[in-house]
Simulated scan of single mutants.
Amino acid sequence: MTHLQKLLACCLPAEAVKSIHEQMYVHPSLQQAASGTVTRAELAQALNMALFHGLVQRVPAGQDYIASDVVAQKRQVVFDHGALRTVRWPSGALPAGEAAFTRVLRPLGFELQGTYPLPRLKMTGRAYCHRDFPEEIAQFFVSELHPEQFSAPFQSAVTRVLSTSRDPLGPQDVADLEQLTRDGTLPLAQALRLLPQLLQCFDRQHGVFAMDDYELLLAESAEMAWIATEGNAFNHATDRVADVDAVAERQRALGRPIKDKVEVSASGRVRQTAFRAATVQREFITAQGRVTRDVPGSFYEFITRAELTPMAANDPVQTPRLDLAFDAGNATGIFGMTAARA
């Protein structure tokens, strides 16, 4: 067995481990036979694969696509990036904003690749790229919402919703991450214990809250309303495809809930589209007791990245490189996939 297989087996059923290996491309260097010491890249890849699997289970359109466009066509997903949303605000026992994730991402080998202001959404996006395998290990796009830019009632509602947040990482997890930062590796037994704890970070950490607060948040920010119901779960996972326009046309012809347009970056090198978010049921507190309501969940995205052209003949990197950057305009358009629909 490889380290990846052993790591995934500690947090996914055997059939899921088998299917995710069949469905997703993994660089050969990350599929070495188990030796007892796990690298940060192997642990990062295992985390990404488990998160991708969880996302697909929550998105029916993504499941249909995997079945008909991946498995049936005998190809593999190239996992480009996963996205999550955070709030730069006091959050109970959880570190505020992206700090809850940088403490995980940096030990795993991810480093800040770019910052993307999203003023229309009153958010800031940051992309974290793996330093060892930048094109092969999926990036993380972490967005922070800034409640101080909203109304006082909105801020109060954010405080009430997030106040019950717990921290899924304990002292041993923090110590393991510090060791990983120092050494770049962990003994297999520690990595097997740590991975399920890391997965818990990508979930909702706060409890059930008032429907009135949800309505208040939704009136000013669909993004904060989404965070209120879904927490820090993967907002979307993205499949890197050769021709996103062709993929979109096929999905539209199949009657799947694909976005009306493809977003194109200012450079023209990055093109993105997505399925509309799945609908999920969440519980709220009202004066009459607890009730459930349909709200937007997560979604599946597609991206095409063109190669960068070397800036000059003396560019030290002459081999083809993908444009791994993001685009604030694209991101703003894609965020609309989770807007609540009547």
Rank of each mutant, 00 (worst) to 15 (best):
E98S: 11
N314W: 11
L7M: 09
A210I: 02
A222T: 10
D213Q: 05
G114K: 07
E42V: 00
G255P: 02
Y116P: 04
P320Y: 08
L47Q: 04
H21R: 09
L216Y: 02
N232A: 10
L194D: 03
D132Y: 02
K18T: 15
G268V: 12
T102G: 01
A100Q: 04
E215C: 09
M24R: 07
V280S: 10
R250V: 13
E178V: 02
E215P: 00
Q31F: 01
Y116L: 09
R182V: 01
M1F: 04
Q5I: 12
K74D: 12
R341W: 09
L55V: 10
D323Q: 07
Q318F: 07
G114M: 10
S267F: 05
C201S: 15
P257T: 12
H27W: 07
G231S: 07
N330F: 08
F335A: 12
L216G: 05
A313V: 10
L43W: 01
P316A: 06
E230M: 14
F209I: 10
N232F: 03
Y300A: 15
A242T: 02
G54E: 11
A34K: 01
L112S: 10
R290H: 13
L186W: 01
F133H: 13
A191S: 11
R269C: 07
I137H: 02
A228K: 04
D132W: 01
G289F: 07
T338D: 04
K261A: 14
A157T: 13
F302P: 13
V142Y: 04
A312D: 13
A210S: 12
C129S: 11
T238E: 01
Q190V: 05
G289E: 14
V244G: 04
F141W: 04
V26W: 06
R160D: 14
T229C: 14
L194M: 06
V291R: 14
D243R: 03
D69K: 06
Q31Y: 01
F299E: 15
H3E: 01
F209K: 09
L324Q: 09
V244K: 02
A16D: 14
M24Q: 09
F154K: 07
D69Q: 15
I227R: 01
D315S: 15
L94E: 06
Q45C: 14
V317L: 14
Y65T: 03
A152I: 14
R271D: 13
P168Q: 08
R271Y: 09
A99M: 11
L108T: 00
A210C: 06
S265F: 04
